[in-house]
Computed example of a mutant assay.
Amino acid sequence: MLIKNLKKFAALGLFISLGISSTTFALSNPDSNEIKNPDKKIEDSKDRTGCKERKNKHKNFIDPATMKELGITNDDIRSARESGKTLFDIAKEKKGLSEKEVKEIIIKNRTERINKKVEEGKIPKEKADNILLKMRSNIEKWDGSLTSPRADKETCK
């Protein structure tokens, strides 16, 4: 009798602890905008999850090794963005590099970074090959602009 009751209490305790832990994961964190302005409803979800994130994602897409090799700084990039210059314009002013040379430097540095991830076992070789192929194609088509083409779409304005 005591053993049967003990089993029932153990099962009940397990059931309650699972129920409590599952509801903990179901809770969501409120958006920071909801905390600041609880009465104001956010109507356009693209502003929260789409364009702003994409703009920030592409904010510093040039890695430090490439910047060093091109002889540019974050301030150079920021001022070029504001004045409408391209990365090619900056590289030509700073080091006299052509568009082709800039693209080769970017491809070389990104390839080294991806190959290092393969060596560390962070990504498989097949995936790295696909990434490198797509990256090379995108950089070869790139016009040197310092803004994300996705962030400039009409839907984001």
Rank of each mutant, 00 (worst) to 15 (best):
V118F: 08
L18V: 14
N60K: 10
E154C: 00
G19H: 07
S79C: 04
D129E: 15
L70H: 07
K157Q: 08
F88L: 06
I62F: 13
K117I: 05
R136N: 04
A11L: 15
E104H: 11
K4C: 05
I3N: 06
K7P: 03
D31R: 09
A10Y: 11
K4S: 08
T49N: 13
D76I: 06
M67C: 05
V118S: 02
K7L: 14
T86S: 09
K157H: 11
K117R: 12
E104C: 04
E119D: 08
G144P: 03
P38Y: 11
K157P: 01
S17C: 12
N29I: 13
D75A: 10
I3V: 10
T86P: 01
E119T: 11
T73R: 02
R48E: 11
M1Q: 07
V102D: 03
V102S: 02
S45Y: 13
I90Q: 03
A10G: 04
N115V: 00
G84D: 04
M135H: 07
K100Y: 14
F88A: 00
P149C: 05
S28D: 10
N109K: 14
K134V: 09
K94A: 07
T24Q: 08
K8V: 13
K153Y: 09
N56V: 12
N56E: 14
E82F: 09
L2A: 07
S32Q: 10
V118I: 02
K153F: 11
K55V: 04
D89C: 07
R81D: 03
L87V: 05
S45F: 14
N56R: 14
I35H: 00
I106E: 01
L27H: 09
D89R: 09
K68E: 14
A80P: 12
A65T: 12
D76N: 12
K153A: 10
L18C: 10
E43N: 12
A151K: 02
I42E: 09
N74P: 05
I90C: 02
D89H: 12
R81C: 06
I20C: 07
I16K: 02
R81H: 07
S21N: 06
R78I: 10
D44P: 06
N5W: 15
C51R: 01
T23M: 15
K41R: 06
R136C: 00
I35C: 00
V118C: 01
E53V: 13
T73G: 03
E101Q: 15
G121K: 01
G19E: 06
G121M: 06
L146K: 00
N56D: 13
D76Y: 06
D143E: 05
I105S: 01
F15H: 02
L87K: 03
S21E: 03
T147S: 08
K46T: 15
D39R: 06
L6H: 05
G96M: 07
E112D: 15
K55S: 08
D31S: 11
S32I: 15
K52G: 06
N138Y: 11
K100N: 13
D47F: 14
S148N: 04
G144T: 04
D152P: 08
L18Q: 05
E112K: 13
S137W: 09
D39Y: 12
L6I: 11
